Computed example of a mutant assay.
Amino acid sequence: MTIETLFHADAYAREAEAKVLSATAEGVWLDRSIFYAQSGGQPGDTGTLRWAGGEMAVANTVKGEAGAILLKPAEGATLPPEGAAVTMLLDWPRRHRLMRMHTAMHLLCSLIPGAGVTGGQIGLEKSRLDFDLPEPPTKEALTEGLRALVAANHPVSTSWVDEAELDANPGLVRTLSVKPPRGAGVVRLVRIGEGEAPVDLQPCGGTHVRATGEIGTVTVTKLENKGKQNRRVYLVVED
């Protein structure tokens, strides 16, 4: 069964209705989801499920078999009945912070063109990207570049393209350690900026803000040497 990924259609949806397909110790599987499942370095969403006579705290969201998005119940939580109509309530402040972080990481990629991304992790307090290059720009130069891109308030949009189009433009894929999900025939692209030369354009299934100005103050705090050609860059965004 295909799950309706509401977070792809609208990353700002904080509440929506759904139907419980199954509820086991493994997790709760709904027919649609505003909760993003942990993947690509972005943590899974948290929040609450409510139904007639009960509610369940969602401690994490992960991917299951056959395209399922599994909502992990908090320890000791009551599970909803199978077939029940539920209301999904997203922990919005947490998600929005992750969206700001994730979009800032795309901007960081744009400042180091041509270097493959060998790893990354999006966090609430700090995030990091690893680049395959001998020497990155200084943290001061990267911070200045990021803040200029944020101040320009570039629009952020998404589109879907055929896998064949992605194959014809392999340079769109920046990540060396994680490849875009394939098999559905289409791949989701995230574009920052407009025109023929956007600030950033690459496959990504995560959630992002609508414009770079929403990121707020961003700072590159640390650079680390993690190997002969591996440079780790840490960044933070302020509340």
Rank of each mutant, 00 (worst) to 15 (best):
G76A: 07
P203V: 15
D45M: 02
V86Q: 02
V233L: 12
P181E: 08
A59Y: 00
G216C: 07
K19T: 12
P81R: 03
E224H: 05
N153I: 11
K228T: 11
S22R: 14
P170K: 14
E196P: 11
A148Y: 14
C109I: 07
T118E: 12
A66T: 03
A141M: 12
D200I: 12
L176T: 13
A18G: 14
L98S: 09
G41W: 05
T175R: 14
A9L: 15
R97P: 05
I112H: 09
W160G: 15
E163C: 12
M1K: 07
E196G: 07
T158P: 08
W51V: 01
G120Y: 03
A9R: 15
R94D: 04
C109Y: 07
A85F: 00
P155I: 02
P81K: 04
E75R: 09
S177T: 13
V237C: 14
P80F: 00
E125V: 12
K63Q: 03
L142E: 10
K19L: 10
D162R: 15
H208Q: 13
L111W: 06
K19W: 03
M88T: 02
G64F: 01
A18E: 13
M88E: 09
T212F: 07
L201E: 13
A77H: 05
R32N: 08
D45W: 01
E163R: 11
D200K: 05
A85I: 04
A16R: 06
L89Y: 01
Y12Q: 08
L30Q: 06
R191Y: 02
T175G: 07
E214V: 14
A164D: 13
A197P: 11
I112Q: 07
T46W: 00
E82R: 09
Q42K: 00
L235P: 08
A18M: 12
D45I: 02
E125G: 11
G119S: 13
A184T: 15
L172R: 10
K222R: 15
T48Y: 00
V20A: 04
G123V: 09
G205P: 06
A115R: 05
P81D: 07
T46N: 00
A184Q: 15
G120E: 11
L70Y: 02
L149D: 07
T207A: 13
P203K: 14
N153K: 14
D91C: 04
A148Q: 15
R232M: 13
L49R: 02
M1I: 09
M1F: 04
A25G: 10
E194A: 13
C109T: 11
P113S: 12
Q202P: 09
P80C: 05
P73Q: 06
E196I: 05
L108G: 10
A148R: 11
K63H: 07
G40Q: 03
G183A: 09
G41V: 06
V218S: 08
T46L: 00
V186H: 12
A115K: 09
P155D: 11
E140I: 05
D45Q: 04
R210Q: 14
A197L: 09
T221Y: 01
Q229W: 03
C204S: 15
W51P: 04
N230Q: 09
L129W: 01
A9V: 13
V209E: 04
M88P: 01
T207P: 13
L223W: 06
L146H: 10
L129D: 05
S39R: 08
T221S: 10
G40I: 04
L235F: 10
A141G: 13
H102P: 08
L172M: 15
K179M: 09
V178R: 10
A104N: 10
G83M: 08
E165A: 15
